[in-house]
């Protein structure tokens, strides 16, 4: 198993992508399997650090929370744009001390933060673990730190660490 399929999840994802791009038939399934196995063994030759999913059953919960949050902040940013650039809205940088160290989890957090309108990932210092975010509507700095730490970081640490 380990020698033939070093990355079973990656192989399955590649096969699924192949089938979606062509058609669901036996022939395409065989070709797609060959391509996916070849590609995942090529990936193994690069020796990337292997991500570990400790509790993958929490992933749907994360997906649900993120989808709703993105919808909510879409509405928030759209209303800011409609109302116009008012003076009482403060935009600024927030420094958030993170305890998350797993590289895959940080990448997922980057996807979440950047896909959410209203927050943008600016800089991350690996030695201190401090993340610099830019927030469009910075009413309360402590509240944003609490949102990132309690809502996403805790869940990501449960899943990956």
């Amino acid at each position: 198993m380990n020698r033939l399929l070093p990355y079973p999840l990656l192989t399955a994802a590649l096969l699924l992508m192949w089938l979606l791009l062509t058609s669901f038939s036996t022939g395409q399934f065989l070709v797609g399997t060959a391509v996916a196995i070849g590609a995942s063994r090529a990936m193994a030759a690069l020796h990337p650090s292997k991500p570990r999913l400790r509790r993958w059953q929490l992933l749907p919960k994360l997906l649900g929370i993120v989808t709703l949050d993105i919808l909510r902040s879409n509405i928030a940013v759209a209303s800011i744009i409609i109302r116009g650039d008012r003076r009482d809205r403060v935009a600024g940088f927030v420094a958030i001390p993170l305890d998350l160290r797993d590289k895959t989890a940080l990448a997922v957090l980057a996807c979440i933060v950047t896909s959410t309108p209203g927050t943008a990932w600016v800089e991350y210092a690996p030695e201190s673990g401090v993340l610099l975010l830019h927030v469009l509507d910075l009413a309360d700095e402590a509240e944003w730190i609490a949102v990132i730490k309690n809502r996403y970081e805790a869940l990501l640490m449960d899943i990956f660490e």
Binding site: V77, I81, A91, T114, T116, P117, A120
Partner: peptide, 25 residues
């Protein structure tokens, strides 16, 4: 709306937020 946002905001780091409306929902 995101495109209008890039016209309205005054600083670069504010403009970064506007196109994500188009790339997300």
């Amino acid at each position: 709306l995101g495109a209008i946002g890039t016209l309205r905001f005054r600083r670069f780091f504010e403009r970064v937020h506007a196109p994500t409306l188009g790339t997300s929902w």
